[in-house]
Amino acid sequence: MSFHWPLTRIEKTVSHNGKSVSQECAMASAPTRIRLSDVAAAAEVSVATASKALNGTGRMTEETRRRVRDVADALGFRPNAMARALSSQRSLTVGLITNDSYGRFTLPVMSGLSNALVDDGISVLMSNVEDDPVAARRHLDTMLDRQVDGLVVTGRRIDTALPLDLAEVPIPVVYAFTAAPENAVSLTADDAQGARLATDWLSGLGRGRLAHVTGPEEFAAARIRAAAFRDVAGPGAPVLHGDWSEAWGHAAIGRLWGQGARPDGIFCGSDQIARGVVDALRERGVDVPGDVSIVGFDNWSIVAAATRPPLTTVDMGLGGIGREAGRLVRALIEGGDVAPGPRRLPCRLVVRDSCGGSAPAAG
């Protein structure tokens, strides 16, 4: 199948009925928008059939639907967002509301969310509400005025809700990495599974004297990770709670060494804590990972890569949480059957030099 345009031409190849088909695609000297009628003409179908094929509606053979989509891809056809919104009675936007002003957790979630929605032509509007209920309500009203099709709510910790009641919001809401009502669709990282990954890895390296240095006990994430650590290391393994900071990691080593405890494996509740631990051990002439293996939590690349040696750490998969939030909110918008309740997504271990050993085999 080939077609010709009164313009400069390029060739693209698509697969059609198991064969490679060369198609000549329009390239003007100035940018020219490919219209639906161009796709229809090239695919030798009506405009109505082309529209239905691209929208996944209407009755036609699968061969026709595939041919239209192949031609649209080859031409670089992009549906007009306003026309799509009018025809579907949707705004093709999703709102993201957060109180994570630094973006430490929200930006990876937003990246995953955007990646999940962009192929459907859906844009993401983000608002940072911090902890001000008046500002939060104002931002929400603005999003509702813009007729967003759904909302994703995220934050800076899993046990604190945003200062906003969304119970009466007339559009679908998905919570990601923040506290959520019991009957809501919500997503978090599986902190317990991630902590077990780290502790099992240290044990598998032959480290028998393990300690856990983590954040404040009032944080649910810190409590969950500490409990999982003790499930593997034993109830007598030391757990030290403090700030989520390098300074606390540094101070914790002083406390452990001052008490005569000399662990040969330390699981840290965050990468910042782990970096402070590594620095304090270096100051004492303790080799990492020769004498002590270190594992962090977060896979915050700017910290993990800058630690010397680079930090083995647990990745919470925040981008994956964002992608799953996008999938779920899209399904809710489209009227899909999505069961309410929490979903815990698995973490993964990223092995670098701070613990010794080799990365686990893929598969």
Rank of each mutant, 00 (worst) to 15 (best):
F177Y: 11
W248S: 14
A305W: 14
T13H: 15
P238I: 13
I302W: 13
I333P: 03
E182H: 13
H4E: 13
A306H: 14
L256P: 05
L256N: 01
P133N: 05
G58A: 07
Q147M: 07
R330T: 11
N17G: 11
A53P: 12
R323P: 09
V45G: 13
T13K: 11
T154S: 03
H212T: 07
G336N: 06
G317T: 03
H139K: 07
Y175V: 01
H241R: 11
R207M: 04
M143V: 14
V239Q: 09
A195C: 04
I97D: 03
W244L: 11
V45P: 15
V213A: 01
I171S: 14
P238Q: 13
V213Q: 02
V134L: 09
Q193D: 14
V169R: 11
R84H: 10
L281N: 05
A228T: 09
S87K: 13
P79F: 02
I302L: 15
A85C: 10
L197P: 06
V295Y: 05
A42I: 02
I10D: 15
G76R: 09
S22C: 12
G265R: 04
S29Y: 10
L151M: 03
W300E: 03
A359N: 08
D279W: 11
D264F: 02
V153K: 02
R330D: 06
E324Q: 01
A42V: 01
L345N: 09
L166T: 01
W244G: 05
D298Y: 07
G150L: 00
G242E: 01
A339H: 03
A50F: 03
D337H: 07
T307D: 09
V314K: 00
D243W: 06
A161W: 08
S88L: 02
F297P: 01
A339D: 00
G103C: 00
P235F: 13
G285L: 04
S245C: 08
D38A: 02
T106R: 05
L107R: 12
T98D: 02
G112L: 04
F229N: 09
S270W: 01
G336L: 00
A167P: 15
R35C: 12
A40H: 07
S127L: 15
E324T: 12
N115L: 14
D145P: 10
V185N: 04
I333A: 00
L345K: 09
S101T: 08
V286F: 08
D298C: 13
R90D: 13
K12D: 06
D191M: 12
T106P: 04
A247Y: 09
N299F: 03
L54Q: 05
V94G: 00
T64D: 02
A228E: 06
T178L: 08
S114I: 11
A304S: 03
A48D: 13
T49R: 07
V277A: 00
L86A: 09
M1R: 15
V338K: 01
A280W: 12
D271W: 01
G260T: 14
V185T: 11
T313K: 00
E168I: 10
N115C: 11
V174C: 04
